[in-house]
Design a protein around this nucleic acid. Structure first.
Lengths: 214, 214
DNA sequence: TTTAATATTAAACATGCGTTCAACAGATCC
DNA sequence: GGATCTGTTGAACGCATGTTTAATATTAAA
């Protein structure tokens, strides 16, 4: 196929570039993250990457092929960053909103989750498993309430954790925030309170949902 | 020269067939709820309503006009049912998943929330206000933890409450459930536990997030 | 019955989409 | 020098979309 010897290559004219494919892929991830898969057009990606629409297809076969390539790329970025940060929760979270490429990667994942595609399901399954391991083994010194149905519990928590990112735009309008960091800062104390103590102060007297824990 | 201009408000013609328009509108709500606004086609709606595509446009002016009509219709359905059920929480919830029309109305709302349209924002704002009133005044005998930032707290809780519906498809795949009722039944105990007691059992020793509440 | 207005349809129109194609420009190898 | 392969483009193709139009069917009024 294509031999990419870095040292035998000298800087050349706009032709001959393994960079080009990467440029297209980066533009595609950004476009998909912003508009979702359906509304994103090949022409739009080509324009963002400053190439012709035909070249996009030439490199990735089809729009779906490009999507698959984006999936792999984003998955690598996310997992590699997760490995680097290991158990440093706050650091990882901060990174997700500070590093712009990581931020678009997260947006990409969210859009994948909302599209009814298999890729998004893979991400979600992976995420639920991760949450389940955190719930059982603890995470960064935190321990969690145990349940008879750890998988259901993990799915519940996972969904809750994803919700603010999914409805970010709606939250911005309601809270008057302008970027992700501001919004998350505003939400953080309430999320912490919810996770630490719940939301309900007292139940009706005739309720049987009292404190009959195991 | 046919004038279909939106010139006057009283377009109520003496000989209109209200059944047909209503049939189209019902079909449209269902299609929008299932596939979202963008992926839903006028031809698809027309087929579902067993009419010609042209008639859809004739009755509602455009696809966007049809969407607006759907918005009003769904909004009426939701609010009228909410008024009927007043403070009977469980009853209202059950109705949402038992009454098929109410169920598609909810799906429609969720899709509206994910589309970056103004309509969805109206719904969300309304919902956050509702949650805020519940948080301050209580709801069906329940009282809730008070916060210095009730609006932010309401937004947080609202987002959490919407999350399972938004990710319903993803949850079905993870939990092996097949309909909304099964899924919600599976989630219910964990949601209850979260809302009653939170999710975190203990924090790291060096953490300053202890129980220093106001 | 005649007339006018609406309800409805099939076909056509205009546009935007993903994709294909023919041609060209460099690079590599003989 | 060709010969050949790849990167790249601009134009075109085929198709699906939202919408328009011309014509027909139906209804109500005169």
């Amino acid at each position: 196929m294509r031999s990419t010897d870095p040292d035998s290559d000298s800087r050349r004219s706009p032709n001959s570039s393994p960079e080009t494919a990467e440029k297209i892929l980066t533009a595609a991830v950004a476009e998909f993250a912003r508009h979702g898969f359906t509304k994103t057009t090949v022409r739009g990606i080509a324009a963002a990457a400053e190439v012709s629409p035909g070249l996009v297809i030439h490199h990735f076969g089809s729009k779906d092929g490009l999507r698959s390539a984006c999936d792999e790329h984003v998955f690598e970025r996310i997992t590699e960053s997760k490995a680097k940060n290991a158990s440093y929760a706050t650091m990882a979270v901060q990174m997700m909103f500070d590093d712009p490429e990581m931020s678009t990667a997260v947006d990409y994942l969210v859009k994948s989750l909302l599209d009814p595609s298999e890729h998004g399901q893979r991400y979600f399954d992976h995420y639920v498993d991760l949450v389940e391991s955190y719930l059982t083994d603890g995470f960064a010194g935190y321990t969690f309430r145990q349940s008879e149905d750890p998988h259901g519990q993990a799915a519940t928590i996972a969904v809750m954790a994803l919700a603010p990112s999914i409805l970010e735009h709606r939250l911005h309008s309601v809270l008057g925030t302008e970027d992700t960091t501001d919004m998350m800062t505003r939400l953080a104390p309430h999320l912490l309170d919810l996770y630490l103590h719940g939301a309900i102060e007292s139940v009706p007297e005739d309720s049987d949902l009292g404190d009959e824990e195991s």
